[in-house]
Computed example of a mutant assay.
Amino acid sequence: MASTTKEGVNIVHQNAILCETIKKEQQYQKLYTNYSVNPFKKLYTLSGKPNSAHDSADGEEDSNFLETIERAHQEPVKKYSNPQTEAQEIGWTTKPLIDTDRTDRRLHFPRHNSDVTKYCAAMWRIKEQTENMQ
């Protein structure tokens, strides 16, 4: 029978495993250096650098920053050409399917007031006013 004796930890093998792990991590790691302001945060006040000569008293406007903020506050229909999620598909097309003609009685049903409804509305109004006066 083979004896299973446990030997000490081999430092060379542990170091090789560590180096291989670090190499794999660095292979897919990307350094992000393009810093920007979060456009979805409501508070976006930026101050200039201290002792900077190019900051005027009027203040400079960063056009890229303003475009990012404006784009973040737009409706999804204006940002994207197609809905991005299933929930956005509901109500994505808000244009009416047909042009409605107010004179066409088949599609337009305006509210009509008869003598009875006018009388009830006046009576209800008087009742509300007398209750509020007390």
Score class of each variant (00 low, 15 high):
residue 79 K to W: 02
residue 18 L to E: 12
residue 128 E to L: 09
residue 23 K to G: 08
residue 58 D to V: 02
residue 121 A to Y: 12
residue 121 A to K: 10
residue 3 S to K: 04
residue 120 C to R: 14
residue 25 E to K: 15
residue 113 N to E: 15
residue 48 G to C: 03
residue 28 Y to F: 14
residue 124 W to Q: 14
residue 7 E to V: 05
residue 6 K to S: 03
residue 78 K to V: 06
residue 105 R to D: 11
residue 96 P to S: 07
residue 30 K to Q: 15
residue 87 A to G: 05
residue 111 R to C: 15
residue 48 G to E: 03
residue 10 N to R: 06
residue 79 K to Q: 06
residue 70 E to Q: 08
residue 9 V to M: 09
residue 24 K to A: 11
residue 126 I to C: 07
residue 58 D to A: 01
residue 83 P to D: 04
residue 31 L to E: 12
residue 74 Q to I: 01
residue 91 G to I: 00
residue 42 K to E: 06
residue 1 M to Y: 12
residue 12 V to C: 07
residue 90 I to K: 07
residue 24 K to N: 14
residue 46 L to M: 06
residue 94 T to L: 05
residue 129 Q to F: 07
residue 15 N to E: 10
residue 114 S to R: 10
residue 59 G to C: 00
residue 108 H to P: 02
residue 68 T to M: 07
residue 75 E to A: 08
residue 90 I to A: 07
residue 112 H to M: 15
residue 51 N to M: 02
residue 100 T to W: 13
residue 54 H to P: 04
residue 18 L to K: 13
residue 62 D to Y: 03
residue 45 T to W: 05
residue 17 I to M: 12
residue 66 L to F: 04
residue 53 A to L: 01
residue 99 D to L: 10
residue 79 K to Y: 04
residue 111 R to K: 15
residue 48 G to T: 04
residue 115 D to N: 14
residue 4 T to S: 02
residue 68 T to S: 06
residue 79 K to V: 04
residue 11 I to S: 10
residue 107 L to F: 15
